[in-house]
Nucleic acid binder design. Structure first.
Lengths: 152, 152
DNA sequence: TTAATAAAGTAGTCACGACTACTAAATTCA
DNA sequence: TGAATTTAGTAGTCGTGACTACTTTATTAA
């Protein structure tokens, strides 16, 4: 081991990127553990939720549109959406207006599961963010600033 | 679609958990893209860095110790550490004091790559967190509070 | 109006990340 | 001390998440 230290700080916890990563991983773990009760994963939840939002807006939702909205890549979206179709939570119809595209719709079962899942998601969020409850709006603003200015 | 909305908010961006997840995923993507230049992943970087920290403390580092420190599970750590051994970035010796355990050490090549990687990591962090530069300490405090009070 | 290009979706690879289940070596304690 | 339990590590599965490469269908433009 050489004498010149590689890192500029004394503990990894001083690094905001490291903290962001760690907290997010824990949050995801808690979410996935909780969502197991309704038989879906966090990623599946986010796609179901995205589909719900877009449908609420009155949009015709293709896989690509959903991927753009949920910030997932289209290859992964393709797979997960097929999984969700297999579970009967959404339907994939051929889009009559575009021979390449699929048209996604939540099934009644999908909407039911989404509602149940969201209850669990809200519980986990409440438990996690309770620690900074009084400054939740500050946190939200900072995260939005990060999100909006993310490189590339 | 029923008339009663499932979600309590109008846009997903109002949800702190969702934002945390999205920002973290982007951050990871940027890190992994940048680290490709030195041939390692973010996870590999974090284990090399953890090993460096623990060695600096004078500890004998086993895989389990490293997993605990980096908050990774031991199964994943086992695999990634073998990958890193294959790349010649660390060595895994049998621990003479415990027949079950491996003793990990950074190789000189590992230390070199860690240094190069950390330069890239610092650049990405600087670019990402530039957006909240003046409030970086507020962000750090909030994240530490979340981390310290994470359920379970 | 074709020819070039772009877009929607799929197949398959690699590397996590969480998991169950297992082996073998320590440790504990009855 | 010998049996029960704990601990370190591995094997293999599932579900992302990013990627390359491909097919098929639209769109654009020469």
């Amino acid at each position: 081991m050489t004498n010149s230290p590689i890192f500029a700080y004394a503990e990894p916890e001083e690094n905001n990127g490291y903290l962001l990563w760690q907290v997010s991983m824990r949050w995801q773990l808690l979410m996935n553990q909780r969502l197991r009760d309704v038989g879906i994963t966090l990623t599946q939840f986010s796609l179901l939720a995205g589909l719900y939002w877009l449908d609420r807006r009155g949009e015709v939702v293709t896989q690509q549109r959903l991927a753009d909205y949920a910030n997932t890549d289209k290859m992964m979206t393709s797979k997960v959406v097929q999984t969700l179709e297999g579970k009967g939570l959404l339907s994939r119809m051929d889009n009559p207006e575009d021979g390449r595209a699929k048209q996604l719709r939540l099934t009644p079962a999908g909407e039911t599961v989404l509602g149940q899942a969201n209850t669990l998601v809200e519980q986990v969020d409440a438990a996690v963010f309770q620690a900074i409850q009084s400054e939740a709006n500050v946190f939200n603003r900072l995260m939005q600033q990060l999100m909006a200015n993310m490189p590339k």
